[in-house]
């Protein structure tokens, strides 16, 4: 089963960059796509919180036919990487089939951000992937 086509497009785009600075600028531009939900429209409860993510990320999945639509809240305004990840996952996985989402591997974190992540940062971003997969499997 292939991963969702839009996620593959992101990965293909990122694979083009050979210049580190260009890669970073692209990720920053993606983080600008993240839309922060206010407290009234997104209730933060412990069950939605991504474990091990110091950027204080919450994820919810709203059923949409046979699939789900994802919503993210990154409460740390310094959490640029988490915002970029949220933007990618929200736009590429919402509406995808549950089988396609299940096919997403945790190593997309390295494909997106490269191998310079600290263990803590890697942990938080990987757990975002784990949670979206878990929510799709329910």
């Amino acid at each position: 089963m292939p991963i969702p086509a839009k996620l593959q497009e992101y990965l293909d785009d990122l694979a083009i960059f050979t210049d580190r600075q260009d890669h970073i600028e692209y990720l920053i531009a993606l983080s600008d796509d993240y839309k922060h939900p206010d407290a009234a429209s997104f209730v933060r409860i412990e069950e939605k919180k991504v474990p091990g993510c110091e950027s204080e990320v919450f994820i919810e999945a709203v059923p949409n036919g046979s699939s789900v639509d994802y919503r993210f809240a990154v409460d740390n305004p310094q959490g640029i990487s988490a915002m970029a990840m949220a933007a990618i996952l929200q736009s590429s996985l919402s509406g995808a089939s549950r089988d396609e989402i299940a096919a997403v591997q945790e190593d997309i974190v390295f494909k997106i951000f490269g191998n310079e992540l600290s263990m803590g940062k890697n942990l938080g971003l990987t757990n975002m992937v784990r949670i979206v997969k878990l929510l799709a499997s329910r």
Binding site: I24, E25, I28, S31, G79, I80, S81, E116, K121
Partner: peptide
């Protein structure tokens, strides 16, 4: 920083 995106942002 820990987050490599922060400084360039």
């Amino acid at each position: 920083n820990e987050d490599s995106l922060l400084y360039p942002s």
